[in-house]
Design a binder for these strands. Structure first.
Lengths: 147, 147
DNA sequence: TTGCTCCTCACGTCACGTGAGGTGGC
DNA sequence: TTGCTCCTCACGTCACGTGAGGTGGC
């Protein structure tokens, strides 16, 4: 997306880029949904990367589109981090059985999310259909009046 | 949906049928999103019809699927009520010009909602596509391990 | 009469919004 | 130096959740 150099970003820039507010980003850090550098001095500015922007975007997307709570998102993010950590540790060193287990588990999580998305899409498709019928009825009535 | 006789329903039944809680229904009445009979005695039980069930279903659907706030929903419901009232008043008595105006306005509201629904559907379609790609990558890796 | 659901406060919670007062970097 | 954005409390708000104590209908 952004091919610019990866200079450090300020909280206001991240908020702008993700369509949210600085307060929201601070709150996400407060509840442990965003990392928040431990080595930041009291009162010092927070510092972000474009990777953080992607993380925030993803969180907001799942929250808005799927209606997940921040608690659910925290668990989800933690689970993903755990899997990423495992991948790094066991990348080439460990045996194939462990890699299979990790991959299988990751695929199950993806399947769950896909089902959630599909359920929402179906519900929205139904809603659109009903609205289109209402629209058709209204248009027919209007056409009758024009005659 | 329900072909049963239209006997009066209690708040717990409405909650059950709509997948919510009595507290939520009372809250919606409190903020004016649901009507709430004015002639109910202090401490007396609230009484609902199957039409109320439909209203609550519709509210929850728009709230969950489109992410509308209760304030937005209140305005929307009030606008729909106003249009329904106008339709009743001007049904056959008034001139065609007024009817056209009412119909056109209603169609505009429907168009707005359809656009909202379509935007959400597009966003969800993108999300599903990304998840499917992740799934494909995971499955390829797993297949490699099986060999 | 016994349960169950209902009622009305009223305080708690989640996910932030919104100043209040102060410090820091271009 | 002047603005601007940042910082940390801390209280407010929206949409309910959750008892507390009491009344009402099958």
């Amino acid at each position: 997306m952004s091919t610019t150099v990866d200079r450090p970003l300020r909280i206001g820039e991240v908020a702008e880029l993700t369509g949210t507010t600085p307060r929201t980003i601070r709150y996400y850090e407060e509840i442990g949904l965003l990392p928040g550098a431990a080595d930041r001095g009291e009162g010092k500015h927070r510092c972000y990367t474009s990777r953080d922007v992607d993380r925030v975007r993803e969180i907001l997307r799942l929250k808005d589109l799927l209606g997940l709570s921040l608690e659910q998102l925290t668990k989800l993010v933690m689970a993903e981090n755990a899997r990423a950590e495992l991948r790094r540790e066991y990348q080439e060193t460990e045996d194939a059985a462990t890699q299979r287990r990790i991959l299988t588990e990751a695929l199950e999580h993806i399947d769950t999310q896909i089902e959630l998305v599909r359920g929402r899409r179906r519900a929205l498709a139904e809603l659109e259909q009903e609205l289109l019928e209402k629209q058709a009825v209204g248009r027919r009535k209007l056409a009758k009046l024009e005659r």
